[in-house]
Design a protein around this nucleic acid. Sequence first.
DNA 1: CGCTCATAAT
Length: 764
Amino acid sequence: MASLPSIVINGTLHRLEPDLRKLSPTSLPAEKGFSYQRSTAAPESFSEASQPLTIQEALSFIGEGSRVEPALYVPLLQQCIEYRSLSETECIHGHIIKTGLREEVFLSTSLVNVYMKCGAVDYARNLFEKIPQRNIFTWTALITGYVHNGQPENGMVVFVQLLESGVYPTYYTLGAVLSACSASYSIEFGEQVHGYIIKFGLESATSMGNSLCSLYSKCGSLELSVKAFGRIPDKNVISWTTVITACGDNGDADLGLRLFVDMISEDTVPNEFTLTSAMSLCCSAHAFDLGKQVHSLCVKYGCDSSLPVRNSIMYLYLKRGELDEARRLFDSMETVSLITWNAMIAGHAELMDMAKNDATAHKSGIEALKMFRRLHRSGLKPDLFSFSSVLRVCSGLVALEQGEQVHGQAIKSGFLADVVVSSALVNMYNKCGSIDKASKAFVEMNTRTLISWTSMISAYSQHGRAKEAIQLFEQMRLAGVRPNHVTFVGVLSACAHAGMVSEAQHYFNVMRNEYGIKPVMDHYACMVDMYVRLGCLESAFDFVKCMAFEPNEIIWSILIAGCRSHGNMELAFYASERLLELIPKATETYVLLLNMYVAAERWQDVSRVRKLMKDEKIGVVRDRSWVNIKDRVYFFRANDRSHFQSDRMYELLEDLLERAKRLGYVPYKNADVSDDEKEEKAASGSTLHHSERLAIAFGLLNMPKGAPVRVVKNITMCRDCHSSAKFFSILTGREIIVRDSKRLHNFKDGRCSCGDFASEEPPF
DNA sequence: CGCTCATAAT
């Protein structure tokens, strides 16, 4: 028995499937409703019919016998494509056999095409095999059909068969094969096809060049894509649009924008496709001024009423933070698409992340959730984009309950099978402080990408579970996934966390030698952090000296924190003043310095720094925390007494602090940098309570007994609150999770997942 | 042959 034809695509052998002997009509797609309207393209003989025709009536017009004109079938077959009607196609097929026209190759080819368009791949293939005088059109119809039905590999195998049988491909055949290569991301096969295109003298055809440009981009090679674009002698709008989009897809928005500018200066008129892409590039490159100009071009060329263009303009407004403008545009749109909703949700999610954890962030997040609900009500079904974005929103809000609801919806809708959605889910559980749920979601994923592995490794690291992080990293390597620089940040920070010096050094070398990844500041920061945590200040400084570049803010702040916790205050002050020079506008650096001088009771320096802050017009810090309980959110300021439960909260805090002191809690002194003068005065004399402590108290009072308390804080947690929260977790027997602007703190049984090293670093 | 929206970090 002759073996089935096969080729190697992306390193795996593909045989032409299915096996023809196993054909069955059971797995066919559902038909759309079918009724004949009089076709405008119908030949004369139909023109008298005024009522819709049944297929039998339509076929009876064609008649039977030897004088049947084959072209009469054409409009009927076109109707079959339009209605995706397999049964009608079979009737016509039968009629063709009866009238003895099965020898007519163009009709057989047409039938192959129609079967494919109806999704009946097996039927098409079976027919193809029975056509003895098949020509290049028949071959091309088969290839195109495979690509259309999501079986590009089969299309490529057929192409090889075609070449072996000595038939010359046409322009259309090669175009179809290029689509197949694109759809299966097969760059090697694509390059071979590229060779055939040159061989058959078609490389100067604009559309061939466009297809090649698109192919290389889809396969991830921007370089080859741009080269293919460069070789097109007569570039049209589509050529330009393809290469500009290719830049965006491959992460080089700046190049894409340069090409767009080139295109405009060459007087090529952009259309809605080009402008939509260009607008999107402006969003990702944060080139907002250019974005405004592109917007003008949209108006100039009359493209501003196109829905995709409007979506991208709206997204640009959102990215610029012009919420009212975005909203106005959104409200003015008479029709919206799913992408409109998704852009709205994603835009707000991005604003939320940019604003870190403050009240603005919260507002954006809530707005995004509202949009997600409205999307539901609008009757459209959320897709993987909607789910990814809304999960990101739940992460940002630490909205575990909403996140779990979305989890359920994602399962029901089937979109959880998507890697991006399931990665976002893992991330959501992690950011909400539920490492176990994150891990469960990770294990349940059916496919994992570099990003999924990396985010789970980092999650373990953030929760202080170094061993799991390292184990997972090794599993990832065994799974054949190549780590990148971000993965190593996760691994190294896990080692640093657990003080695993030799492991850290090992992985640092693995990164450089085995994977050829050059360490950047982030990786050095992990190493320095590790030495500092162990109290090896000298090793830390030595390591810094070995770096090929000047220490940045991150390195300085690690050193400062290390010096403080190991009592080397002179060095800490020195480093802090250097840090201040490096970035004089960072509010939290001043606060750090201020608190250090307060703790050292160096009052002259305290007033010097306060004066500096005044001179530099550094605003006071807005200390804000909030808690989600059920569907409501409760905000707290430092020393907040405006709350309806204030009395009970302060009572609880006093009691807890008193009992904590008996267990060994020693309060740290903080400089008061509250922005609420009245509150400050009211609180003078009594203990100063930062917002997170009030939020924790509120959470303890209002969450169900034993349930974890989840707090979000807009700046980094101070030492005193951090220390007291550890005692609270012992005294109440509850888990307390505080996500500040920098990291996650999971307090449990008197310990914090951050490894007690997080207090009062500047927020970098 | 070309379009807009989605996931990881000290």
